[in-house]
């Protein structure tokens, strides 16, 4: 079952920093959910196909074209962050 160290690792993989308090609470909370989930091993499913989507549905396709946003909305969006000459300024990621 899941331990504190593993939770710490998973949180890091998901790029989430947990506080000390969270790290003391989360493992036992996840443990109780995982124990509950164990119920699934009661039934054999070797011959069962997984159901990822419903058989009636077909993919909807469209042309790969860009959409534009009007000036007013653009202005409102810019208010969310720092802008520089009509561009949103974000952290460099490389």
């Amino acid at each position: 079952m899941i331990e504190k160290k593993e939770v710490e690792k998973l949180a890091h993989l998901a790029r989430i920093r947990l506080s000390k308090k969270e790290l003391s609470e989360v493992p036992s909370q996840l443990k109780s959910i995982l124990e509950y989930i164990q119920k699934l091993s009661d039934i054999g499913t070797d011959s069962v196909e997984p159901l990822f989507h419903f058989p009636e549905l077909k993919n909807v396709v469209r042309e790969d074209e860009s959409r534009t946003v009007d000036r007013e909305t653009q202005k409102k969006m810019m208010e969310m962050g720092k802008d520089k000459n009509d561009y949103l300024k974000v952290e460099s990621i490389l």
């Binding site: 699934l40 091993s41 039934i43 499913t45 069962v48 196909e49 997984p50 159901l51 990822f52 419903f54």
Partner: peptide, 11 residues
Amino acid sequence: IKAQKIRSLIA
């Protein structure tokens, strides 16, 4: 995958 198989059984 196990859960998606159970999903089949529910459906």
